Computed example of a mutant assay.
Amino acid sequence: MPQPSPLPTARRRRLGVELRRLRERADLTATQAAALLGATQSRVSNIEAGRYGVSADRVRTIARHYDCTDEPLTEALAAMTGERRRGWWEEYRDILSPHVLDLTEVEHHATALRVAHVINIPGLLQTAGHARALFGHTVPPLKPHEIEHRVSHRIKRQEILHREQPPPYTAIIHEAALRMHVGDGATVRTQLQHLNEISELDHVTIAVIPFVSGPFHTSGQGVDYFHGQVRQLDTVQLDTDHGAELIDSPAQLERYRLILDRTTQSALPPAKSRDFISQLVKDL
C-alpha cells in the first residue's frame, strides 16, 4: 500500500480541499464517504489532505458519489491529477521557503493572472538588477549566494510570460512603486524601461494608478489573483511579512475579485500608463 506523501504539492493539497468541499456539500462524513467509495476513513482523510494521489477516473467517481453535477468543475479537478513529475521549482526545495514554492506552483498552472501592487513592482515584471537590490534589503540579511538563488528563481518564474501559450497577465501598479528607488539610477531606469517593453506584448497589460487618483480600493498589501481552469479553482496570494499567504475560500475569492475590479477603475488605460512610465524615465 502506498505511503502518504510527507510533502504534498500545492496543487495536490488544493485538489484535496476541493474534494472535501464536495463531500461536505453532499452532507457526508468522512466515514460515510469511505463506505460509498469502498475505502477506509483514513484514506479519504489522506486524499483530502493531499497526502495521497488519486487518478482522474477516481476523481470522477468521487464526484459522482458526492452527487456533483458540475461537469466543468469535475473535469478541472480530474485534470489536476495529471502531474507525474514535480515542477522545475523543486530544485529550490532546500533553498527557498515552502511558501515561495507553493506560490510558484499555483502561478505556473494559472490560466490568467491579475495583480495589484502599491509598494513593489510585481515579481513577474522585475529585472534581475531590481530583484537583486530588493533582496539585498531583507530582514534578516541574506548572504550573497542566497540573494543569487532568489534572483535566479524569480527570473525563472517569468518564463510563463514567454512560453508558447502564455496566460493573460494584468498588473495594476501604483505610482509609489514606480517612484521607489530600488538600486542605483541605472537599475531604476532599466526597470521602468522594462515595464514599458513587456507591456507591448499582446497578453500583458500594465495599468498605473497615479497619486492624483486619490484613494483606491486596496491597502498597501500586494494582491495576486490566479485564475484556475474554472472559477471555483481560483487562488489569491497576499504578500505578508512571514511569506506568501494563499487564499481559496469562495467568499474571499469573491471579495478580492471585487477589490481588483474597483482598483482597475482607479488606474490609467494601458497606453496612458506607458506614457506615464516614459515620463518617469525622462525625469530621472
Rank of each mutant, 00 (worst) to 15 (best):
P168L: 07
P167I: 09
T187F: 07
P166M: 07
L178A: 07
H162I: 02
T170Y: 05
L195S: 08
G183H: 07
M180K: 13
E164C: 00
P167S: 10
H194F: 13
Q191M: 11
H194S: 13
G185D: 14
I172M: 07
V182W: 00
I172A: 02
T187I: 15
P168V: 09
Q191H: 10
H162V: 04
L178D: 07
P168A: 12
G185R: 12
G183E: 05
T190H: 13
R163F: 06
G183C: 09
A177C: 03
Q165C: 03
A176Q: 09
P166E: 10
E175R: 08
H174C: 12
A177G: 04
A186L: 07
Q191F: 06
H194Q: 13
E164R: 15
T170I: 07
P166A: 06
L178P: 09
P167V: 14
R179T: 06
L195N: 11
H162Y: 14
A171G: 04
P167Y: 04
I172H: 01
Q193N: 15
V182I: 15
H194V: 03
R179N: 04
T190M: 08
I172S: 01
D184W: 00
A186R: 14
P166W: 10
L192M: 12
E175S: 08
L178M: 06
D184M: 01
M180C: 04
D184I: 01
Q191E: 15
M180Q: 14
V188E: 00
H181V: 05
I173Q: 01
T170E: 11
V182H: 00
G183Q: 02
R189Q: 14
Q165K: 13
R179W: 03
R189L: 14
G183F: 03
E175Y: 10
E175M: 07
P167Q: 11
R179K: 15
I172E: 01
I172R: 00
P168D: 08
T190R: 15
G185P: 00
I173L: 04
H194C: 03
L195A: 08
P168W: 10
H174R: 02
R163N: 11
E164G: 02
H194A: 13
Q193K: 14
R179F: 04
